[in-house]
Design a protein around this nucleic acid. Structure first.
Length: 493
RNA sequence: GGCCUCGUGGUCAAGCGGUCAAGACACCGCCCUUUCACGGCGGUAACAGGAGUUCGAUUCUCCUCGAGGUCACCA
């Protein structure tokens, strides 16, 4: 039979990474088996309706590279693909169950039930519906129905025996029927409850493999009873472990955990996110860590799925993203980095063709996520002229205020006399000068870099920075540095 | 609280009766070096605890402990 998997998000306006991973695994399994991956939007919760939320789902999946074969936007043979458009499909199925004795009408009001539940729970017990309406005479049911009394339809769970199912990851799961409550299938407003609708949808849409979160594991035996009542073939269940923020909390938007969109906006590459996500809760069984979507498709297997929850490790994601960036072609890197350079205020410098290669060379190995760029290069746009002159003192480079003052006063005329202003010319002048004076390169270059950047840590060294800054700005900053050192020595500062 | 599930270094994770218990991230050290990175080399670090079964348990069983999930006319 052809494999059919689905991703059925409820459109909340964002996609957190746990959801995305579920979609990824469902996609992978479908693709690996040359099956069908379909999208179904669970939009029945009007209370949580968010404008444009469906678009977020589409956009996220597209950005992540997970294409679907059937869905609300492209149709298919098993539509409609939006839950709200399927709302009339469920009642007949529920009635069929009533006919066969697997379900029954219940006229108990929510208020009365809530009251009883509250009482039982107050005493520390677990409330369970007592099947009060199960044995209501047919005539009474007819009469009350005809009178237009509100009703729900409940599943008639056997009072004894076991309910069970087999999970592809967790194996055989079994529970006593006596533990199970007679769940409502159809609500008083005529709408199905989520789980009932899911059973009907998954069956009528021909789903063969249900990949979903762990939270459904314990209720699955109960819904399997429904499949048996209908005489339908059960899908293969694959319950996925939860992605945690730490040992005791799961990842959640509410608690400020990043969504897929947040990560992309922060400068993570979608391919890196997907690659990392695939490895949280799944292992290829060998030592490979880097996968394209296509490679993942080939390597993916249900056996590699983990049974225990995994903590989302931002640090490892960051590392993986950095690795993806380092492996980029330099040209491609610069294209990606450019908007971030512009945002950092160095657009003008980045515009100059001769600077593209310099930026790429100094930034690419230092970019773990693209948002790292701005704080790294903003000093090029504007020098913080109040930097601490203590920065000129560096033990390893053998510099202090006095040495720096002397270096700057010699370097200024030297650079000023350069005919050409480019990396080679600056390099030769500076390194040549150090050699001539028998100075450590560091002793000469440290003060120059400090004066140009006002920072002890910079991407690239003095030569690259001077080239990027250009002659005028370099000279201005060097003179400023010298001036500050002179005034300090004179006791003015 | 009842029920279900899980439990290998700080994190991800291999292992599926016999291993000196992989690998990656993180961390630490050294090298490279024009600062910081990158890169190279090396290092610290784990089978939750207790009973069984077995010639032999990380691996099988049970208990304890810990963690998560679930018990709605929400999805």
């Amino acid at each position: 039979m052809k494999v059919r998997t689905r991703f059925a998000p409820s459109p909340t306006g964002f996609m957190h990474v746990g959801n995305l991973r579920t979609a990824l695994y469902a996609w992978l399994w479908a693709r690996k088996n040359r099956g069908v991956f379909m999208l179904r939007i669970e939009d029945t919760d009007q209370a949580r309706f968010v404008e444009g939320a469906e678009e977020v789902v589409y956009k996220t999946l597209r950005t992540a590279g997970l294409n679907w074969d059937e869905g609300p936007d492209i149709g298919g043979d098993y539509g409609p693909y939006v839950k709200s458009e399927r709302k009339d499909m469920y009642l007949p199925y529920a009635k069929q169950l009533v006919e066969s004795g697997h379900a029954y009408y219940c006229f108990c009001t929510k208020e009365a039930l809530d009251e009883r539940r509250a009482k039982v729970e107050a005493e520390g017990g677990t409330f369970k519906y007592d099947k009060h309406c199960l044995n209501m005479p047919k005539e009474e049911i007819e009469r009350r129905l005809a009178a237009g009394e509100p009703y729900v339809i409940r599943q008639n769970v056997p009072t004894e025996g076991k309910a069970d199912f087999d999970d592809a990851i967790f194996g055989h799961i079994e529970v006593d029927c006596s533990e199970l409550d007679d769940m409502i299938l159809i609500k008083a407003d005529g709408m199905p409850t989520y789980n009932f609708a899911n059973v009907i949808d998954d069956h009528t849409m021909g789903i063969t493999h249900v990949l979903r979160g762990m939270e459904y594991l314990s209720s699955t035996p109960k819904y399997n009873l429904l499949y048996e009542a209908f005489g339908w073939e059960k899908p293969t269940y694959v319950h996925l472990t939860t992605i945690m923020r730490d040992a005791t909390h799961k990842l959640s938007k509410r608690d400020g955990d990043a969504t897929f969109e947040d990560l992309v906006n922060a400068g993570y590459l979608p391919e890196a996110i997907i690659n990392y996500l695939a490895l949280v809760g799944w292992s290829p069984g060998d030592e490979r860590e880097f996968f394209t979507l296509s490679e993942l498709k080939d390597a993916f297997s249900l056996e590699g799925l983990s049974k225990s929850p995994a903590i989302f490790d931002h640090l490892k994601l960051r590392w993986m993203n950095a690795e993806y960036i380092r492996r980029m072609d330099g040209k491609a890197y610069f294209e990606k980095a450019k908007p971030w350079l512009i945002k950092a205020g160095v657009g003008e410098i980045a515009e100059k063709p001769e600077n593209e290669e310099i930026f790429t060379r100094i930034l690419q190995p230092r970019t773990e996520i693209f948002s790292d760029i701005a704080p790294n290069v903003d000093f090029l746009a504007k020098l913080d002229e109040d930097y601490d002159t203590e920065l000129f003192t560096n033990k390893k480079s053998k510099t202090d205020a006095e040495v720096s003052k002397n270096v700057l006063s010699e370097v200024i005329p030297l650079l000023e006399s350069l005919r050409e202003w480019n990396e080679t010319a600056i390099h030769d002048a500076l390194i040549g000068f150090a050699a001539e004076k028998g100075m450590k390169n560091g002793t000469l270059l440290w003060p120059v870099r400090i004066a140009m950047s006002g920072r002890t840590v910079t991407p690239g060294g003095a030569i690259e920075i001077a080239a990027l800054l250009g002659r005028d700005e370099t000279m201005r900053r060097l003179r400023l540095g010298l001036d500050r050192l002179v005034r300090q020595t004179a006791g003015v500062l």
